[in-house]
Structure formats: structure tokens, C-alpha cells
Simulated scan of single mutants.
Amino acid sequence: MAPAPALSVSAVTPELTDAAIRMLRLLDSPEDAKVLAPLIEREILFRLLQGEQGAKVREIAMADSRLQRVSRAIGWLKTNYRETLRVDDLAETAGMSASAFHSHFKSITAMSPLQYQKQLRLQEARRLMLLGMRDAASASYDVGYSSPSQFSREYRRLFGLPPSQDIERLRDLPQSLVAA
């Protein structure tokens, strides 16, 4: 059986909408908020748990759920994206078999662990180049690539342009668009 998708959308019930509006109204009444906000927060959680996404909300809250275990592996990847990736080691970090880990990881992130690591590397290299801290070859080595040509191919595949052209294009954009 394939794991359920990590994200899904459901209609908001009138009861949940009402609780959310009452919570927002408390922004104008700090004294009332001290007493009522915890009660409304509890009601919102109750409504979420009773709704269509209740199972997903419960899974998020569980300390050792698949989602939490994959989240640990994602945290490791974010810290160690430069390292050579062994899916077996990452699965062990998550406390799962390699096949179960791969399946759950993909259902949560919509990509394989290797694709996720690649995207982390490319995003960091792009940031380094955009800040003027590195040229493409240096950035590629800094983020864990051993081949600048492989880096350039993967960069172009993700961002649509070779590194130097993409960075030039980004620098020419108004700052308000780059920050968005």
C-alpha cells in the first residue's frame, strides 16, 4: 500500500472558521486574549482533529510517527548536504528500512532523498554566487560537487539557465522581486 500524500486540502467547516475569526478578533482585546486565546486554540485543535485531516494532524503530533522520522532525516540532510549521501544510512537515522524510508520520504517531499540533497546543494550554491561570495566552480566544490561540469548541468536543469547567466539575470531583477 502506498503512503498517503503528505499534503492535502479539505474544505474548512463553518465551526473552524468561526473559531479562527474569534481568535483573530482577540488581537484587538489583549486583556480578553489572555483568558480566551488558550480556550479558542484548544477548540481549533479539536476541530482540526475531528475534521477530514484529523489523522494527518495526529501523525504530526506523534513523537515517533513516520513524518517525524523522515523529518529527522531531512534535518540531517540540511546540515550535511555536502556529504556523500547513502540512503541506507539516512534510513537508519529515520529508523526505517531503506525501501520504506524512500517511499515515505518521497510522499512527504515529492522527491527522492538524492533529489532533495541535490536541490539543497544547488540552492546554497546559487545563494553563494548571488551574494558574490563564490564563482560557479568554487560554489560547486563548496556544496559538495566534485565536478563543476556536472554542477552546471544540474544547475541549468533546475533553474533553466547556466549559473553565470542565472546569477546575472537575478542581479538585474528589482530587489523586491529577488527577496520574494
Score class of each variant (00 low, 15 high):
residue 2 A to G: 05
residue 4 A to V: 03
residue 4 A to M: 03
residue 7 L to S: 07
residue 8 S to M: 12
residue 11 A to M: 09
residue 12 V to C: 14
residue 12 V to D: 11
residue 12 V to L: 15
residue 15 E to I: 03
residue 15 E to M: 12
residue 17 T to H: 09
residue 17 T to Q: 07
residue 17 T to C: 02
residue 18 D to L: 15
residue 19 A to W: 14
residue 20 A to H: 14
residue 21 I to S: 07
residue 22 R to P: 07
residue 26 L to Q: 13
residue 29 S to C: 01
residue 31 E to W: 08
residue 31 E to P: 01
residue 33 A to T: 09
residue 33 A to D: 14
residue 37 A to M: 12
residue 41 E to N: 13
residue 44 I to P: 10
residue 45 L to V: 11
residue 45 L to K: 09
residue 46 F to P: 01
residue 47 R to K: 15
residue 47 R to D: 07
residue 51 G to W: 01
residue 51 G to A: 03
residue 52 E to P: 08
residue 52 E to N: 09
residue 54 G to Y: 14
residue 55 A to P: 01
residue 58 R to D: 07
residue 59 E to R: 10
residue 59 E to I: 08
residue 59 E to G: 02
residue 61 A to Y: 02
residue 63 A to K: 10
residue 64 D to C: 04
residue 65 S to A: 06
residue 69 R to A: 04
residue 70 V to G: 08
residue 74 I to Y: 03
residue 77 L to S: 00
residue 77 L to D: 00
residue 78 K to E: 15
residue 80 N to I: 09
residue 80 N to T: 08
residue 81 Y to P: 01
residue 81 Y to E: 02
residue 82 R to E: 08
residue 83 E to K: 11
residue 83 E to F: 12
residue 88 D to Y: 10
residue 88 D to I: 11
residue 88 D to G: 08
residue 89 D to F: 04
residue 90 L to Q: 03
residue 90 L to F: 06
residue 91 A to I: 12
residue 93 T to L: 06
residue 94 A to C: 04
residue 94 A to L: 06
residue 95 G to P: 02
residue 96 M to R: 00
residue 97 S to P: 05
residue 98 A to V: 13
residue 99 S to Y: 10
residue 101 F to Y: 02
residue 101 F to K: 00
residue 102 H to N: 09
residue 103 S to N: 06
residue 103 S to V: 12
residue 104 H to C: 02
residue 105 F to T: 08
residue 106 K to D: 01
residue 108 I to R: 04
residue 117 Q to H: 01
residue 118 K to E: 12
residue 120 L to D: 03
residue 125 A to M: 10
residue 126 R to D: 04
residue 128 L to E: 00
residue 130 L to W: 12
residue 136 A to F: 10
residue 138 S to G: 05
residue 138 S to C: 02
residue 138 S to W: 02
residue 140 S to F: 05
residue 140 S to H: 07
residue 142 D to W: 10
residue 143 V to Y: 09
residue 145 Y to C: 04
residue 145 Y to Q: 04
residue 147 S to H: 13
residue 147 S to Y: 11
residue 149 S to R: 06
residue 150 Q to H: 07
residue 150 Q to W: 03
residue 151 F to H: 04
residue 155 Y to W: 06
residue 157 R to D: 04
residue 161 L to N: 00
residue 161 L to E: 02
residue 165 Q to C: 00
residue 166 D to H: 14
residue 167 I to G: 01
residue 168 E to N: 06
residue 169 R to T: 15
residue 170 L to T: 13
residue 172 D to N: 11
residue 175 Q to M: 03
residue 175 Q to H: 00
residue 177 L to R: 07
residue 178 V to Y: 10
residue 180 A to M: 12
residue 180 A to L: 11
